[in-house]
Simulated assay, not measured.
Amino acid sequence: MSEISNALEECGALQFGTFTLASGAKSDYYINIKKASTNPRVLYLISQLMAEKMQKENIRPDRIAGIVLGSIPLAAALSMATGIPFVMVRKEQKDHGTQQLIEGDLDRGENVLVIEDVVTSAGSSAKAIALLRENGAVVTDIMSVVDREGGGKENLAKIGVKLSALITGSEIVKGKR
Rank of each mutant, 00 (worst) to 15 (best):
I129W: 07
N58M: 14
L21V: 03
K94A: 09
L69I: 15
L101P: 08
E134R: 12
V118Q: 00
A36D: 01
I31C: 05
Q55K: 15
G160M: 08
N58W: 03
K56N: 14
P61T: 10
G70I: 10
N155A: 10
L45W: 10
I33C: 15
E9F: 11
Q100A: 15
R148G: 03
A7K: 05
G104W: 09
Y29D: 12
E92Q: 12
D141C: 12
A81K: 14
K153G: 03
D28V: 05
I64A: 11
M88R: 11
L113V: 08
L45H: 11
K158A: 11
K56C: 08
T82Y: 09
L132A: 11
M80Y: 11
E3S: 09
E154D: 03
E134G: 05
R108D: 14
V118S: 00
Q100P: 02
V139P: 08
D117K: 04
L106T: 14
I46M: 15
M1F: 02
E9D: 13
R63T: 03
K176C: 00
N135Q: 12
R148L: 11
P73E: 10
E134K: 15
E92G: 03
N39Q: 10
A51G: 12
A128F: 06
E57T: 12
A36F: 07
F86L: 10
I67R: 08
F16Q: 01
F19V: 09
G109I: 06
E52W: 06
N32A: 04
R177F: 07
S164D: 15
A157P: 02
V87Y: 09
T38N: 13
F19K: 08
G97L: 13
A122Q: 04
A81D: 07
E3L: 13
I167K: 02
R133P: 09
L156F: 05
A77L: 09
D28A: 07
T140H: 14
L43T: 08
I64Q: 10
I142K: 03
S124Q: 06
K53W: 08
K26Q: 12
Q55W: 13
V68G: 07
V119H: 11
G109V: 01
S71I: 06
G175D: 08
D95V: 01
S125N: 12
E10H: 00
I167E: 04
S121T: 15
S37K: 06
R177Y: 06
S121N: 13
L69K: 12
S23N: 03
S79H: 04
L131K: 13
A13E: 03
A77N: 14
E3I: 08
V118C: 00
V112K: 11
L131H: 00
K56G: 02
S47L: 10
L106K: 02
A36S: 13
N6W: 00
M50P: 00
V138N: 10
R133N: 09
K26F: 06
D147H: 04
G12W: 01
E149V: 01
T168I: 07
E116L: 08
N155F: 02
G104N: 07
D105I: 13
R41W: 03
L131C: 01
V146N: 00
V173D: 00
M54C: 14
K153Q: 15
S164M: 10
L45R: 07
D95E: 10
I33S: 06
Q48C: 09
I64P: 11
I67K: 07
K53E: 15
I84N: 04
D147K: 01
T18K: 12
